[in-house]
Design a binder for these strands. Structure first.
Length: 275
DNA sequence: AACCAGGGTGATG
DNA sequence: CATCACCATGGT
């Protein structure tokens, strides 16, 4: 593993991007301020930022083929932020509060499972369940002491009883249903990636425990459908209070980023919604 | 100890 | 179509 240094175009912030609620398998490295570690695409990665630069502990090839796409580095986020900020003062405020969020290109299957687990759940516990899922059912990553996200095939034969150690509650049966339907090709993630958005939503919602919100999250974070705009309890409240009169369609291809900015801003300012 | 959590489902008005 | 109890677990 060769350590390389790459300069990432602003705006880009690791804590904002990795801990804003879009991904659940990244954590700060204890005792190393600015450093984060996690697993995606079957690979473990440590990266850190200092003095406006982000460094990746990986080879040039892995950076080019895996991590640059994952962090959506080809996209011009300065332009997206500017476009959203011009739409409303509140949106400009949310953008200024977290100017370094990027929408990660996560794997479809992992994103689907992650947001199945997220239903009626809180983020600390979501992270714990997913960590146990990977440790118990994922492939170990050589030399990293970490585990890849388990494949659909690895979960398709499980039962709620055998998944009990996850402590996922009633969501376990949804994970199993997703694994079985994906493994059998009844839900075709490759086809969904190419399908018209409305068809893609419908396909995903064939899975037990996948409704409009979970499907929207999977499509935004796992399929990079950037016009998706997941509406959870926080977002519904935030739209009412902060952006009355706006609808998701108003944001076009920047809807996903807009949603993440508003979500994060609202979570960090709960006093805005006091009774 | 209660209340709540990045909801979905199935059963009723 | 709108509402509502219920779901399993544990964080705060």
């Amino acid at each position: 593993m060769q350590e390389k240094m790459f300069t990432i175009p602003a705006p880009f912030s690791l804590p904002q991007t990795l801990d804003c609620g879009q991904a659940f398998r990244w954590a700060p490295v204890p005792g190393q301020p600015g450093a984060w570690q996690g697993v995606a695409q079957g690979q473990a990665l440590t990266l850190w930022e200092s003095q406006g630069e982000v460094s990746f502990a990986c080879t040039q090839e892995d950076f080019d083929t895996l991590w640059a796409p994952y962090f959506d580095l080809a996209e011009d986020y300065a332009q997206k932020y500017a476009a959203l900020s011009s739409m409303s003062p509140i949106l400009a405020q949310a953008a200024a509060f977290a100017p370094g969020i990027r929408i990660l290109r996560q794997e479809p299957w992992e994103a689907l499972c992650s947001f199945i687990v997220s239903q009626n759940n809180n983020i600390p516990r979501i992270k714990g369940i997913l960590a146990r899922l990977c440790e118990g059912w994922g492939q170990p990553i050589p030399g990293a002491g970490q585990y890849a996200f388990p494949t659909p095939q690895a979960l398709a034969g499980e039962t709620p009883e055998t998944l009990a150690p996850l402590r996922a509650g009633y969501r376990a049966k949804s994970l199993i249903d997703a694994a079985q339907k994906v493994a059998a090709g009844q839900v075709d993630l490759t086809a969904i990636a190419q399908a018209p958005l409305e068809d893609a939503r419908q396909q995903l919602q064939k899975i037990t425990g996948v409704g409009p919100k979970v499907a929207e999250c999977a499509l935004l974070y796992g399929f990079h459908r950037t016009q998706c705009f997941p509406l959870d309890v926080w977002m519904k409240r935030a739209m009412q209070v902060l952006l009355p009169g706006f609808s998701p369609g108003d944001f076009g291809g920047n809807a996903g980023l807009a949603q993440q900015l508003i979500f994060h801003y609202s979570r960090m300012h709960p006093e805005l919604f006091a009774a």
